[in-house]
């Protein structure tokens, strides 16, 4: 079945450079500012710096977690990586090619290789399309199959791979539960054999008992197809579980990047400390003795330098 879903020949065909190195996604000083309004001469009067100078690298085959509170810019980074947005400044190198400058046509092969899974499986699937069309649409766009039969076969195989049944092909999204819909979203993302998947809060709309199913499946698929994930979430315990490395965002900037165990055991930035101490611990004895730290951004800003510095191998902190 795996040859239907993914083969190396096709997956590397789109690579312009063909350079084989360790880093798949290289984000360099990415900025995305939104103008909140314009005055009567059309000049922007208020700028929201959603992402304000973020640099990080994602290695091939790893899961990079991005955490932060709402408004920290983590989802905006994700959307920049799939080029839903044009950037204000900075560049994103995907497999050695700067995708920030590409036009629609040049971007198309990258659109196939970079896929995304959104948070809300209720609003991200078109209610007027059946599962076959939902999963088959990206395949059509990228012209992966010559015949309808071939496409149907491949959709069927995908459905089985994500734990649904072939018979579900002619059903519509509303007939499925939240967890099943998220499986459909995953199948849709995988239908074009991507290299890199941006998972934007893929489990936060799901029930606790179903979250673990989806996480396990994402891990299996990653191992099977050699996928690289950007995993954006606010559930910090789940992020630790799935990520190899984690970046913590605050106010549009990365404040700390480290291997996940290192980050959780040895957080250095005061915001990371506050964030980690706020995780509700599902164990009454431990929960009652812990008390959350409070982060005061004013104190930290006075520290001046907000650049990330490497304090120990692979552990980067801002203004430390």
């Amino acid at each position: 079945m795996s040859d239907i879903l993914m083969n190396d020949a096709i997956s590397s065909k789109g690579a312009a450079s063909g350079a084989k190195n360790d880093v798949l996604v290289d984000v360099r000083n990415l900025k995305k500012h939104f103008t909140k309004g314009t005055d009567i001469w059309g000049r922007s009067k208020d700028v929201l710096k959603a992402v304000d100078g973020v640099s990080f690298q994602i290695r091939r085959g790893e899961t990079f977690g991005l955490v932060g509170e709402s408004g920290s810019g983590k989802s905006t980074v994700g959307r920049c990586l799939i080029r839903l947005y044009d950037y204000t400044a900075g560049e994103v190198l995907f497999d050695g090619t700067d995708i920030s400058k590409l036009g629609d046509k040049q971007l198309k092969p990258y659109r196939r290789r970079i896929q995304t899974i959104f948070q809300d499986p209720y609003s991200s699937l078109n209610p007027g399309m059946n599962v076959l069309d939902l999963i088959g649409e990206p395949m059509n766009i990228h012209g992966l199959h010559k015949s309808g039969e071939e496409r149907k076969e491949s959709v069927g195989a995908l459905l089985e791979r994500v734990g649904l049944k072939r018979e579900h092909m002619y059903r519509y999204a509303h007939e499925f539960s939240g967890g099943q819909r998220q499986r459909i979203s995953i199948a849709r993302a995988l239908s074009v054999r991507p290299d890199f998947v941006v998972c934007d809060e893929p489990i936060s709309a799901l029930d606790v008992s179903v979250q673990a199913q989806v996480i396990n499946m994402l891990e299996d698929l990653q191992a099977e197809f050699g996928l690289t994930y950007l995993f954006i979430a606010h559930d910090l315990s789940m992020v630790r579980h799935i990520s190899d490395r984690i970046g913590v965002m605050y106010g549009g900037r990365l404040v700390e990047v480290a291997d996940s165990d290192e980050l959780y055991e040895n957080p250095l930035h005061p915001y990371t400390k506050a964030l980690l101490s706020s995780i509700p611990i599902p164990d009454p004895r431990a929960a009652r003795t812990s008390s959350p730290l409070i982060y005061d951004p004013r104190g930290a800003a006075a520290g001046g330098d907000q650049e990330l510095k490497e304090v120990s191998p692979g552990h980067y902190v801002a203004g430390y």
């Binding site: 606790v208 008992s209 673990a212 396990n216 315990s237 630790r240 996940s260």
Partner: peptide
């Protein structure tokens, strides 16, 4: 028990596979 076990375990062995409750309500 299923709910408690489907949560990621704290501490070092975080790479252990999660134990989900199969199926749906």
């Amino acid at each position: 028990q299923g709910l408690l076990r489907s949560l990621p375990q704290r501490g070092g062995a975080n790479r252990e596979r999660l134990v989900p409750i199969e199926g749906s309500p």
